[in-house]
Design a protein around this nucleic acid. Structure first.
Length: 571
DNA sequence: GCCGTTTTCGGCCCGACTGTTTTCAGTCG
């Protein structure tokens, strides 16, 4: 089982314990352990085999024995006991923003409600407001929350699906019967939330693959399988579909299964003009029933007299027209990125030392890195005082000098306070190389006020970048109410950059916002917002999202050379 | 449940908002 899956188990234990009313510090120990596992630089299985579990800080005797049990048996008896004790629906209720364990407990004990459906009904019938500490707003909040959960029902964030897909590929790639294996479906297109993991295998002997999957610890249950298709579900409840085709049909099947359905329909319409019929099993010229050879996806597009259209664009949002007219964007690539402009160190709420972040940036071949810790009012994140930031700047300056091969920017992620002012005086912000502004509090402001709040930050000439402009957390928190298009108008005037936050939990701006921002000519930055050196890795999710927003290298400030960036920052 | 080790018990990120109260518990970042 992977680190991520064990982390999920610990998180579920923590949720259930909290619902039970267990000691909060015990609960927190499980959460912390989950977080540690999630960010472990190597597979815990290896650590276990070296008998070094006890050396991981945060994992004591008891948690180590649970890890051991999970690795050995694929099960966790403690979790199974908790699951029997606590109805599954209560855990789902916890996902409603504003409903915590105490409220869920009250609802369960007083009204005997155990499912979201019952909860929704009770809220509609105004039965929740009769409970102690709850009122009409709680009911409204519950209904809104359930609606949000329904919208994301059955979908998983791309980052989670991607790591599972890559783990499965790693398991299957080495099999002699697997000639080729690739990601397909909406995950390949880079959608922010996906239905599950879709893989395509080119193989002449599919039977062996099925038996390997049946035994895989990553797979909880194979739901159906024949020699062309396997459908399974993982321990985290993620749906996995693996299609298997003859190797000579691989590319056609890959293109067809990647979709989107709308894109493929448009392709077929175009095929009709050329008397071509597209299907996963063959590209046929209808007159002579001649099967055309396909040696790559490019061939398919070429038969249709189109340039190759990358998967991220295949949504029928203008890519076919652009292809016909020869104006497909030259999409930004991961290799174009020259630095990360939003990273947290352990001076505030990050876990890595500055030097570790810098090393990670150098390993990625970056020209520059900005350290942007939190500002002073964000107490929980260990926001830094002016003095601390000055001290950090000195550290960065001398580190930069001693290393000599990377430019370090002394930055800060300054909170935009509810009244629109920033968390430091302008006179201080002037000292910083890079100022990122963002909202971390008072999310539920009314739209006009929130818009005005962010507008005033954009209008401050010292603000270089607006971070995570809508504040959403994928599948968990909706964007705050804000007139984004108006803010883009403002940003276009002030020349303020907007961020594409690459954290797979955020992806904010999203692809729609990015395309809009590009229309307005706003400079964009793709930043990881990493709180851990390993998470500089998340840049790739930002790139995919930027590509889906049709961005090119020139649109992205951290794809510029340092000299150009410096000029733009006025340094 | 973990940690420390000058502690084997007593801490553990902490302050503010929200919606409910009528002085505060619960939730969140």
């Amino acid at each position: 089982m992977t680190n991520l899956e064990i982390a999920w188990i610990f998180n579920e234990i923590a949720d259930l314990m909290e619902l039970k009313g267990d000691n909060i510090f015990k609960v927190r120990a499980y959460r912390k352990a989950a977080d540690i596992l999630h960010h472990l630089p190597e597979e815990i299985e290896n650590i276990y085999h070296r008998e070094e579990l006890n050396q991981i800080p945060g994992i004591g005797k008891i948690l180590a024995s649970k890890v051991e049990e999970i690795l050995q048996t694929g099960r966790c008896s403690y979790l199974e006991r908790l699951r029997e004790e606590i109805p599954q629906g209560l855990k789902e209720m916890l996902a409603i923003p504003g409903l915590g364990p105490k409220s869920v407990q009250t609802i369960y004990k007083r009204l005997n409600i155990t499912t979201l459906e019952e909860l929704e009904e009770a809220a509609r019938k105004k039965r929740i407001r009769k409970l102690p500490g709850m009122g009409s707003k709680t009911e409204l909040n519950i209904l809104r929350g359930i609606e949000m959960l329904r919208r994301n029902c059955g979908q998983v964030p791309m980052g989670l699906a991607m790591s599972l897909a890559e783990a499965l590929i790693a398991d299957l790639k080495g099999l002699p019967e697997v000639e080729r294996i690739e990601i397909t479906g909406d995950l390949r297109r880079g959608r922010e939330m996906v239905e599950g993991v879709d893989l395509l295998i080119g193989s002449q002997a599919p039977q062996g693959i099925i038996s390997v999957l049946n035994k895989s610890p990553k797979i909880k249950q194979v739901l159906s399988c024949d020699e062309h298709r396997i459908e399974a579900t993982t321990w985290l409840g993620i749906r996995v579909i693996i299609n298997i085709v003859e190797p000579e049909n691989f590319y056609l099947a890959w293109q067809q299964l990647t979709g989107s359905a709308k894109h493929n329909q448009r392709l077929q319409e175009r095929g009709d003009k050329f008397h071509l019929k597209l299907s996963p099993s063959g590209l046929i010229r209808s007159e002579g029933h001649e099967m055309l050879p396909v040696k790559g996806e490019e061939d398919i597009y070429r038969y249709l007299e189109l340039p190759y259209i990358p998967p991220v664009l295949r949504e029928d949002t203008g890519e076919i027209e652009a292809a016909i007219e020869g104006r497909l964007p030259e999409l930004i690539q991961l290799a174009d990125i020259k630095g990360d402009l939003h990273v947290h160190s352990n001076w505030s709420d990050g876990v890595s030392e500055i030097i570790q972040l810098v090393e990670a940036a150098r390993e990625r071949g970056y020209q520059y890195l900005a350290i942007t810790d939190h500002s002073k009012s964000l107490k929980i994140a260990g926001g830094l005082s002016e003095e601390k930031l000055r001290e950090q700047r000195e550290v960065l300056r001398s580190l930069e000098e001693s290393l000599g091969d990377i430019h370090l920017l002394a930055g800060v992620e300054v909170d935009i306070l509810p009244d629109g002012s920033l968390d430091y005086e302008d006179s201080f912000l002037e000292e910083m190389d890079l100022v990122i502004a963002s909202v971390h509090t008072h999310f539920r402001m009314e739209k006009d006020r929130m818009t005005a709040r962010i507008e005033s930050a954009l209008k401050n000439p010292l603000v270089d970048i607006l971070a995570h402009p809508t504040g959403r957390i994928l599948g968990r928190r909706d964007p705050y109410a804000v007139d984004l298009e108006y803010l883009m108008e403002v940003a276009a005037r002030t020349g303020t950059c907007m961020e594409i936050n690459a954290s797979p939990d955020r992806l904010d701006l999203n692809e729609k916002g990015i395309r809009k921002a590009k229309e307005y000519g706003i400079p964009l930055a793709i930043n990881t917002d990493a709180h851990d050196a390993l998470r500089l890795e998340d840049m790739r999710y930002g790139i995919i999202t930027a590509q889906r927003g049709w961005l090119e290298r020139k649109d992205v400030v951290n794809a510029w050379d340092f000299e150009e960036l410096k000029r733009w920052l006025g340094l």
